[in-house]
């Protein structure tokens, strides 16, 4: 299974690289879809069908909106000559990558094996969850019962995002 996930992650990296370098913006959008749909297969292989359902539908809707945006504007990527600010940004990005890679190299030896959780709360959550919540699906039991605050926060974030979108996109006042 680790081999399959490695192959899919490699494909996702290739798709992301192609999306950066593609001349045509439509093919760049389609190539960035590889990342999302590859993630769906990774979720399925890691036995998380809850996340896979959400990811596949959200990815499709996002892709539809991006394709509509590309059709509405130009399909050519516009280049401009880099000025001083561009060089400063590029140097900062390279510096950030070096720093992050350095600390990743230090911390990777202290990490656990992939898939083994170190969370202290993970065991008690799993043990008596079905009796405590009465829910056959463990994920729903944790999401809506033990971690109710988190779910309420997520739902509130979604409402706030919609309010922001409506505020920005409203040209005429509502009658």
């Amino acid at each position: 299974m680790e081999l399959a996930i490695s192959v899919i992650v490699g494909l996702m990296i290739l798709g992301a690289l192609y999306a950066i370098h593609a001349k045509d913006l439509l093919s760049a959008v389609i190539a960035s879809g590889i990342v999302g749909y590859g993630l769906v297969i990774c979720f399925l292989l890691l036995k998380a069908p809850d996340l896979a359902i959400v990811q596949i539908v959200v990815e499709t809707i996002t892709l539809i909106i991006m394709v509509a945006v590309v059709f509405d504007s130009s399909r050519e990527e516009s280049f401009s000559k880099p000025d001083t600010q561009g060089y400063v940004s590029a140097i900062t990005a390279v510096f950030l990558i070096i720093v992050l890679f350095y600390f990743f190299k230090i911390s990777v030896s202290a990490l656990d094996v992939f898939g083994e959780s170190t969370l202290r709360m993970a065991g008690p959550y799993i043990e008596g969850a079905t009796e405590k919540t009465g829910s056959a699906n463990l994920v729903t039991g944790v999401v809506f019962d033990f971690r109710g605050y988190d779910t309420l926060g997520e739902a509130t974030v979604l409402v706030t995002a919609v309010l922001g979108v409506l505020t920005i996109l409203r040209l005429k006042g509502k009658k």
């Binding site: 909106i65 919540t133 829910s135 019962d145 779910t151 739902a155 409402v159 979108v165």
Partner: peptide, 28 residues
């Protein structure tokens, strides 16, 4: 019909998520 209030939470959060995403799409 089990699990106490979890189905009610599921139903209303489902309505909220569906309406939110539809609202964003319609606004665009």
């Amino acid at each position: 019909v089990s699990a106490g209030m979890l189905p009610l939470y599921n139903i209303f959060v489902g309505i909220e998520v569906a309406a939110s995403i539809l609202t964003i799409f319609l606004a665009l």
